[in-house]
Design a protein around this nucleic acid. Structure first.
Length: 272
DNA sequence: CTGTTAACCTGAGTGC
DNA sequence: TGCACTCAGGTTAACA
C-alpha cells in the first residue's frame, strides 16, 4: 500500500501526537512480521521518550531520548494509527505502544509484510537503511544522477526507478505515473534512456511525489493516515489502474503489461 | 556481477 | 452460497 507519500502522510499525522511522549507499555500480540519483532522489544522500548519521528524512504524512524531508535515499515498493508488507549482491538492489530497521554500508537497489518524493529544506539547504521539511494525530494537526486547510475543497465526503466538502492520512495503507482508525465515507456532499457529524458523523469518523480504528499497519499484499498483518513491522489492518476481506459491527455487506450511481476500501465500515445 | 522469479501473507474480487 | 482462482501500494532470497 504505502509508497513515499503515504509514509510521509503517516509521519506527519503521527508526529504531533507522540513528540515528547513516553512509552509506558508495549503490547506485542503477533511478532510474526516480515522479520520477527524481537522478544526483548518491549523491554527495549518501555520507558523511553519519543523525541522525533523521521522518514527515510518508506521507513519511519522513531528517535528515542536515549539514542535508540525504532524502525517501522508498512509493507503492503501496514497502518500506524493514533488511538485512545481503550480503543477496541481488532484482527491484525499486532503491536501497541501505549503513551503517557492516554493514547497509543497501534501497528495493524493484515499481510504482515511490514516490520517493527529496534535500532539500538550502539549500532551506527542499519542494514535496512544503509544501502538506500537518495531521497527523491533532496538535492542529491537529479536527472544526471539517474543517467549516471543507469549506464549499461538492461533492466526496464520502471524496474530501475523502483529499485530502492537507486532512489527511494517510488513504488508501483508513482513509478508508472512519473514515467507517464516524463513521456517514457516503462519497458525501455534503463541504459538506453537519454540524459534529457532522465532530466524530465527526475522532475516528474519529484513533482508527482510532492503533489501526492499534498493530497495525503493515494487510497485505493487499504491506505489510511494516522487518523484513519483517506488520501486523494487517486483522482490524479493518469495510467495506474487505467488499463483499457482512454488516456486523459490524448485519448489513446492505456496499455497494461507485467514488468518484474508488477502490473504496469502506460499510454502508447504519450510515452515513447 | 546483472537480471529475473518466487516467496512471504491475507483479503477482496471475479467467474463458474 | 461456495469454491477456485487472480490480484494487490513492498522487499528480498534464491536462482539463471
Amino acid at each position: 500500500m504505502p509508497e513515499l507519500p503515504e509514509v510521509e502522510t503517516v509521519r506527519r499525522g503521527v508526529e504531533p501526537h507522540v513528540l515528547g511522549r513516553c512509552i509506558v507499555a508495549v503490547t506485542v500480540r503477533d511478532a510474526r512480521l516480515r522479520w520477527p519483532v524481537p522478544t526483548d522489544f518491549a523491554a527495549f522500548a518501555r520507558g523511553q521518550r519519543i523525541d522525533a519521528v523521521s522518514r527515510r524512504g518508506k521507513y519511519l524512524i522513531f528517535a528515542l531520548n536515549g539514542g535508540d531508535r525504532i524502525i517501522v515499515h508498512l509493507g503492503m498493508t501496514g497502518r500506524v494509527l493514533v488511538l485512545d488507549a481503550d480503543h477496541p482491538v481488532v484482527k491484525h492489530d499486532h503491536l501497541d505502544l501505549q503513551l503517557d497521554n492516554g493514547r497509543l500508537l497501534r501497528y495493524h497489518d493484515p499481510r504482515r509484510f511490514g516490520a517493527v524493529l529496534p535500532w539500538p544506539k550502539a549500532e551506527a547504521g542499519h542494514v535496512l537503511i544503509d544501502a538506500l539511494g537518495p531521497e527523491p525530494l533532496s538535492d542529491a537526486f537529479s536527472g544526471d544522477y539517474l543517467y549516471r547510475r543507469s549506464r549499461n543497465k538492461k533492466a526496464a526503466v520502471k524496474t530501475f526507478v523502483m529499485d530502492g538502492q537507486i532512489v527511494v520512495g517510488a513504488g508501483n503507482i508513482y513509478a508508472a505515473e512519473s514515467l507517464f508525465h516524463a513521456g517514457i515507456r516503462p519497458t525501455r532499457a534503463a541504459g538506453r534512456v537519454t540524459r534529457a529524458e532522465y532530466a524530465r523523469l527526475a522532475d516528474a518523480i519529484r513533482a508527482v511525489l510532492a503533489e501526492a504528499i499534498t493530497q495525503g497519499g493515494t487510497t485505493l484499498r487499504d491506505f489510511a493516515g494516522a487518523d484513519g483518513a483517506s488520501g486523494y491522489f487517486q483522482q490524479d492518476l493518469y495510467v495506474y489502474g487505467r488499463e483499457g481506459q482512454p488516456c486523459r491527455v490524448c485519448g489513446t487506450a492505456i496499455k497494461g503489461i507485467r514488468l518484474g511481476n508488477r502490473a504496469s500501465c502506460w499510454c502508447p500515445g504519450c510515452q515513447r
